[in-house]
């Protein structure tokens, strides 16, 4: 246990919800809400897992994902993409850019927990 997750998301209430679910499950949760500085946050916190929203202020989640994958240090980092636009195109994009898993809002808490556990285990 004691694994660390970084939640990159800008809606304060959703941050609270995810933080609550995961920390109850034994994760230590960091949060960040700006797209522009997200990469720095990842480098600084070096988390075991990242939950990344697509629509972020100043920089898109897809761009951040591409940069993460291009950097050898984070190329294998498990990334769970979140989007509120339940379009097929969004899932395809996420897969193309190398997201480990993809989830559409609104999600069930159990789903989040399952995915995160699965990613951390695998």
């Amino acid at each position: 246990m004691g694994k660390r997750v970084l939640v990159i998301e800008d809606e304060p209430n959703i941050i609270q919800a995810i933080s609550f679910i995961l920390s109850r499950d034994g994760w230590s949760v960091d949060t960040h809400s700006d797209g522009q500085t997200a990469l720095d946050a990842v480098a600084r916190r070096s988390p075991d897992l990242v939950i990344l929203d697509v629509m972020l202020p100043n920089r898109s989640g897809y761009d951040i994902l591409q940069d993460l994958r291009a950097d050898p240090a984070t190329a294998d980092l498990p990334v769970l993409m979140l989007t509120a636009r339940g379009h097929k195109k969004d899932r395809e994009l996420a897969e193309r850019y190398g997201a480990s898993r993809f989830m559409t809002k609104p999600f069930s808490n159990a789903e989040v927990l399952d995915l995160v556990r699965e990613m951390a285990g695998g």
Binding site: A17, A84, R85, G86, K105, P106, N109
Partner: peptide, 21 residues
Amino acid sequence: LSQISHELRTPMTSIRSFSEI
């Protein structure tokens, strides 16, 4: 459409998540 979807889903996410909690 994707905007509407986004605008509706964002509050719904919080509602669903917290009610489950």
